[in-house]
């Protein structure tokens, strides 16, 4: 028996996932190293969200393996996956609309991990100054951009080693997208690994090291963002 130990932080191999009868993922395979910022580029419906949900255990993959820190996690419930240090920021934000900002952060709070200072609400407010002013307001009363910031902050409260962000720039005004890019770069400096899904290439270019092009439930092309082949990108991701 060969145990495939390797140095990847997250190792997704041949994942196949379904919604009812419709197959969404076809042998999805991805690898992310510690400290990397990787993006999945692809159109709507390409399978990015399903990939993330399968990694987190929200969708149970029918076959394939997900390893995080060399531990198989594809059959773990989401709260255990999160407990291992994998944070998730969903696409539709899903802030708790009837909880205040501070309470939303409290839901995400987990104990600190070895060798890192724990995130606290105050530290996060330095990172997201807009949230600080409205800390006692309900999540449901925030603007789209603030909600996006709040979901990221809420996930950081779990002190993750890696975060998965599903289309964070979607529906945000350009100024807010700039702020978001700056925030993600700060996180990268804090040695948080990041996997994100995007349709916005210029945003991805600003923050990511490496890209996977996803098309119809599988990876079609892989490259660093600096060397990303424009033809390939046009073929799989744009008009």
């Amino acid at each position: 028996m060969t145990d495939q130990k390797n140095n990847y932080l997250l190792d997704v191999t041949d994942l196949n996932s379904f919604y009812g009868k419709a197959q969404i993922l076809f042998d999805m395979t991805l690898r992310i190293n510690r400290g990397e910022v990787v993006v999945l580029l692809g159109r709507n419906g390409a399978g990015k969200t399903t990939t993330f949900k399968s990694i987190m255990g929200i969708v149970k993959p029918r076959s394939g393996k997900v390893r995080f820190k060399n531990k198989e996690i594809q059959s773990l419930p989401p709260f255990k996956t999160c407990g291992l240090g994998l944070g998730y920021v969903p696409e539709d934000r899903r802030v708790f609309s009837r909880l205040t900002i501070l309470e939303n952060l409290e839901v995400g709070r987990q104990p600190a991990r070895q060798g890192r200072p724990a995130w606290t609400a105050e530290r996060l407010f330095e990172l997201f100054p807009n949230l600080a002013e409205r800390r006692h307001q309900n999540g449901g009363n925030l603007s789209g951009g603030e909600q996006q910031m709040l979901t990221i902050a809420r996930t950081l409260m779990g002190n993750p080693e890696m975060i998965i962000l599903d289309e964070p720039s979607e529906g945000l005004a350009p100024v807010i997208v700039d702020q978001l890019a700056a925030t993600l770069l700060k996180l990268k400096n804090e040695k948080v690994s990041i996997l994100l899904a995007e349709q916005n290439l210029s945003f991805a270019k600003r923050v990511c090291d490496r890209a996977y092009l996803v098309y119809q439930g599988t990876v079609c092309h892989e490259s660093t963002l600096a060397e990303l082949d424009n033809d390939q990108y046009e073929k799989y991701c744009s008009l």
């Binding site: 987190m56 989401p78 709260f79 998730y88 969903p90």
Partner: peptide
């Protein structure tokens, strides 16, 4: 707070590490 969060969205509460 966790009870209220779970009442609103159990799946998200789960994904945030709450058993």
């Amino acid at each position: 707070i966790l009870v209220r969060a779970a009442t609103e969205d159990r799946e998200m509460t789960d994904a945030l590490g709450v058993n």
